[in-house]
């Protein structure tokens, strides 16, 4: 079971300041937001492919390959259903399919796939600690950022204990695969209860451990990893601003829109 997408590499993207990486993710979101035309989305796709190559993130892209491909058709259909403009190729009952609708739907699908690709790239190059540090840098309260990073750490632990409980109950002859979907879901309840109770047993100990380490003592905590902005970060920021501006200009001058 995949418990983290982070890939430990020494690439230039890995070495960027976490806030810059978060800004990069935002710039991709911002850029694709302004355009619907599939052709206008191609440069972002090329940039993402280049970045994946630099970051050595292909194993994660390979793991998500079917997801990246299969998410496009449903998104196309959703948007084609409501985009009722342009001369129709098929016009039957509620179906109004035009060339513009096809382009519009494909653009939307491509946009979602690019968003997913950007997030895979971000998660491949950013650790949980980097991410929570970037949240703190962005003035998210320390306790919230801490809760998030601690929860991240506990997820594999809980998944592991759930798996142990499932295996133990299978050994005792309990069949999790009997019945329809709802029946199967209900069959997992006896496996979830011990995990839940096991988690609750940790509450007091964890709270005491945190308080013993001065959690919430009002002093700004220090960090094991030190992050500073370097020239590389400044250059990356400048590039990202240029990309974001270009895409906004595409929208402003009407090059990003699909015309019926």
């Amino acid at each position: 079971m995949l418990t983290s997408l982070y890939l430990d590499r020494a690439s230039a993207i890995h070495r960027l300041h976490p806030v810059v990486k978060l800004f990069g993710l935002f710039v991709v979101f911002w850029s694709v937001f302004w355009v619907d035309r599939p052709l206008a989305l191609v440069p972002i796709a090329v940039l993402l492919i280049l970045a994946a190559q630099v970051a050595g993130a292909w194993p994660n892209f390979y793991a998500f390959r079917w997801f990246l491909i299969l998410m496009i058709p449903p998104t196309m259909i959703e948007w084609m259903a409501v985009y009722r403009q342009g001369p129709p190729l098929i016009d039957f009952w509620f179906i109004h399919l035009s060339g513009a609708a096809l382009r519009y739907g494909f653009g939307k699908g491509l946009r979602l796939a690019e968003l997913l690709a950007a997030s895979i790239l971000f998660l491949s190059t950013t650790t949980v600690e980097d991410f929570s540090q970037s949240l703190i840098n962005l003035r998210i309260p320390y306790r919230v950022a801490f809760a998030m990073s601690l929860a991240f750490r506990l997820v594999p632990l809980f998944m592991d204990s759930a798996l142990t409980v499932v295996q133990a109950q299978r050994l005792r002859g309990y069949d999790f695969d009997q019945g329809n979907v709802f029946e199967r879901l209900r069959r997992y309840v006896p496996a979830m209860i011990p995990v839940f109770m096991g988690a609750l047993r940790r509450v007091n100990n964890m709270a005491m451990a945190l308080e013993a380490r001065g959690f919430g003592a009002g002093v700004r905590p220090t960090n094991l990893s030190a992050y500073s902005m370097t020239r590389r970060d400044v250059v990356a920021c400048a590039l990202l601003i240029v990309i974001g501006t270009v895409y906004f200009l595409l929208y402003l001058y009407g090059y990003g829109a699909v015309t019926p």
């Binding site: 418990t3 801490f146 998944m159 759930a162 964890m206 709270a207």
Partner: peptide
């Protein structure tokens, strides 16, 4: 609730449990 350490821990446990069931 963020002032109460036990409540913070419970929010962490809720988050981790929720994610642990969502992810698979």
């Amino acid at each position: 609730m963020w002032r109460n350490t036990r409540m913070v821990v419970l929010s962490v446990l809720t988050a981790a449990l929720y994610a642990a069931v969502l992810v698979p």
